[in-house]
Computed example of a mutant assay.
Amino acid sequence: MSLSKCCDTIPVVDDRAHDVDWSGLFHARGRASDTPGHVAALLGDDAEALVDGYTHLWSATLRREGKAWPATAPTAMLVVELLDNPLLGPDDPSLPDAMLAYLYEVGVAADLGDRAGEIRARVQDRVSELRGWTAEYVSADADGRAQMWQDGKAPGDLVLDQAALACFDLVPVLLRRTLPYLASERVRRRTCAAAAVGSLARHPAAAAQRPELLKQLLTMARASESSHDLATILIAIGSLGGDTRPWLSDPHGGVRVCAALAPDLAGDDTAEQVLVELARSPKAFGKSFGDMAPPLQLQSKWFQDLLKERCTS
């Protein structure tokens, strides 16, 4: 089944997809007109189209550097709509989990700290120029697009900052839609939701919610029966400024490391000793979760950089 036919036979992912000028947006491979069809394929029964859609979602609409493309924010809205769709993964519960993991990555891309106001001011001053550059970019072939990135005077970097700002502005909606999954009946889904909340709730608009969210995450951590899930939840707690010290002495090495990575524990003697041990034997950390990959947050460049910085300081 072709993607065009797939989109004709699958219920619309989100009516708001029709309100987005996807042809005026771009992702890693160029014009983003193909993105709604790829996302819709995740709801279908065409195995090949589903794999292509999944691959497109992760490799085209997200940047490896933990940043956004112009297509990222509207794609995130499609993804959050998928979470409530019964056609998503009826025989594969890992698909909704992966959508929550995607929202975690969007939260990382949207984590602008105190830069949001400065980016907004710069974007507002150059809206027409950015629109013109983008129109030229999506109309160019691959060689032309590559050349445009090499032009130091072009506003491409600001276009990408604008894309991150769009994600930043969307985070309150994504967080609200993600929170119910902290109470999912599926353990893995709760864990993936915790990871997503750990990045999304760093947004300034969530400041008032954060204390209650931390209480909920701490309750989940104490009740966790899996070291992998516990480690994932602890990273989320640390990201939101919660106290992970009680787990610095956990018998599981991977759990200790994830507790020690909490930004607020930088300089803490016990946490630093845990990370010194990690630096001495990084393979032991990789093996500590058995056949499972390390917690999903550690696959993000932001956390990889943090891990490198903390282990070598």
Score class of each variant (00 low, 15 high):
residue 169 D to P: 00
residue 176 R to G: 14
residue 151 D to W: 00
residue 164 A to D: 11
residue 155 P to E: 04
residue 82 L to A: 04
residue 180 P to G: 09
residue 81 E to H: 15
residue 109 A to R: 12
residue 171 V to R: 07
residue 94 S to N: 10
residue 67 K to D: 15
residue 128 S to N: 09
residue 66 G to M: 09
residue 170 L to E: 10
residue 149 W to H: 15
residue 173 V to S: 10
residue 154 A to D: 00
residue 145 R to C: 06
residue 115 R to G: 01
residue 163 A to H: 13
residue 124 Q to K: 14
residue 146 A to N: 07
residue 145 R to I: 06
residue 104 Y to I: 03
residue 87 L to Q: 14
residue 145 R to V: 08
residue 146 A to P: 00
residue 107 G to C: 11
residue 65 E to G: 10
residue 155 P to M: 06
residue 58 W to M: 07
residue 113 G to H: 02
residue 80 V to Q: 12
residue 93 P to G: 08
residue 137 Y to W: 12
residue 83 L to A: 13
residue 57 L to P: 09
residue 179 L to V: 14
residue 168 F to T: 00
residue 65 E to L: 09
residue 122 R to H: 10
residue 180 P to D: 07
residue 155 P to L: 14
residue 177 R to H: 06
residue 152 G to I: 11
residue 164 A to W: 02
residue 113 G to V: 11
residue 150 Q to H: 10
residue 103 L to G: 08
residue 68 A to K: 15
residue 69 W to V: 11
residue 98 A to K: 10
residue 67 K to A: 15
residue 135 A to D: 13
residue 118 E to A: 15
residue 97 D to F: 03
residue 123 V to I: 13
residue 167 C to Q: 05
residue 99 M to I: 01
residue 123 V to D: 03
residue 119 I to V: 11
residue 85 N to A: 11
residue 147 Q to Y: 00
residue 88 L to Y: 04
residue 154 A to Q: 00
residue 70 P to M: 08
residue 63 R to F: 12
residue 95 L to A: 13
residue 59 S to C: 07
residue 58 W to I: 07
residue 146 A to F: 06
residue 57 L to T: 09
residue 139 S to I: 00
residue 165 L to C: 08
residue 152 G to T: 11
residue 67 K to P: 01
residue 115 R to L: 13
residue 75 T to S: 09
residue 123 V to G: 04
residue 173 V to P: 01
residue 97 D to Y: 02
residue 60 A to T: 13
residue 66 G to T: 10
residue 91 D to N: 13
residue 174 L to H: 04
residue 169 D to H: 07
residue 170 L to G: 03
residue 159 V to D: 01
residue 70 P to F: 05
residue 83 L to G: 12
residue 179 L to A: 12
residue 73 A to Q: 11
residue 149 W to Q: 02
residue 107 G to E: 09
residue 178 T to M: 05
residue 172 P to F: 01
residue 103 L to S: 09
residue 171 V to T: 14
residue 62 L to N: 05
residue 129 E to K: 05
residue 104 Y to A: 12
residue 139 S to F: 00
residue 122 R to S: 14
residue 132 G to V: 02
residue 160 L to F: 03
residue 95 L to W: 06
residue 118 E to G: 07
residue 134 T to V: 02
residue 68 A to D: 14
residue 132 G to E: 15
residue 153 K to Y: 01
